[in-house]
Amino acid sequence: MISLNYRDSRPIYEQIKDGLKKLMVSGALAADEKLPSVRVLATQLSINPNTIQRAYNELESEGYIYSIPGKGSFAAGDVGADESRKRELKEKVRELIAELRYLGVSEEELLALLKGEETT
């Protein structure tokens, strides 16, 4: 499900958050699907439950998951409602495109990337 890299410079909670986002975006975690409890995931990954809780809190504040008291946390079905997150991601894409252009990536290669096509 989620793998941690202890040599990664990013904090563990960010790796967990990013791993869960990837699962949701790829469809591996469907809308309204229940996420593992904080304790279960902490046990599976052999880390402190507070680390999982921090990742879950941030995912909830970004609109990727929602919590129901006494029931657990669930993957959100409509993440599109968070306009500030969209703006933030669009800005990151602009920065990446600028860097790729600087490195000589052609417009055709960039378009292929946007379409999800393999480029060399």
Rank of each mutant, 00 (worst) to 15 (best):
L89Q: 12
E107K: 03
S67I: 14
A112F: 10
P69G: 10
R54D: 11
A55Y: 01
P69L: 12
V105N: 00
E99M: 04
A112E: 03
G80A: 07
E60Q: 03
I68K: 15
D82G: 11
G80F: 14
L103K: 02
S84E: 15
Y102P: 07
E91I: 10
R85C: 09
K92E: 04
S73V: 01
L59I: 01
Y66V: 09
K92I: 04
Q53C: 11
L114T: 06
K71E: 09
G104Y: 02
E58M: 12
E99P: 03
V93K: 13
G70E: 01
S61K: 15
A76V: 05
Y102Q: 15
S84H: 13
E99F: 08
N57F: 05
K71C: 13
L96I: 14
R94W: 01
I65G: 00
E58I: 11
Y56Q: 14
D82L: 08
G104V: 05
G104A: 07
E88D: 08
G72Q: 15
P69C: 13
E83N: 11
E91T: 14
L103S: 12
D82N: 05
E58P: 15
F74D: 11
E88H: 06
A112W: 00
E108M: 14
L113A: 09
A75C: 01
Y56T: 09
I65V: 09
E107G: 02
L113M: 08
E108F: 07
Y64L: 15
G72Y: 06
E83H: 12
E88A: 07
L89T: 08
S106E: 04
V79R: 12
K71H: 05
G63Y: 00
E58D: 13
E95V: 01
A81W: 04
F74A: 02
L111N: 06
A81F: 05
G77H: 02
R85D: 15
L113C: 12
V105P: 00
I65T: 11
E95Y: 07
L59W: 00
L111Y: 09
L111K: 09
G80D: 11
I97F: 09
K92W: 15
R54Y: 04
A75Y: 02
R101P: 10
S84N: 05
A55D: 00
L110D: 00
Y56C: 03
A81E: 14
L96E: 05
E83P: 05
E107N: 13
E109P: 07
E95P: 08
P69H: 05
E99L: 09
K92S: 05
G72K: 00
L59Q: 00
E88M: 14
E62V: 06
A75K: 07
E60H: 11
Y102H: 12
S106L: 13
G70M: 06
Y102I: 10
S73P: 03
Q53M: 10
E60I: 03
E91Y: 10
A75R: 03
G77Q: 03
A55F: 06
Y66P: 06
R101Q: 04
R85V: 14
S67A: 15
L59P: 00
E91N: 09
E109F: 08
E60P: 02
L100I: 03
D78R: 14
L110Q: 02
L89G: 07
G77N: 10
G63A: 00
R87S: 06
P69Q: 04
V105D: 00
R94Q: 10
A55R: 06
D82R: 04
L96M: 05
L89C: 10
D78L: 14
R87Y: 08
L110T: 00
G70F: 11
I68W: 03
E109I: 07
L114C: 10
K71G: 15
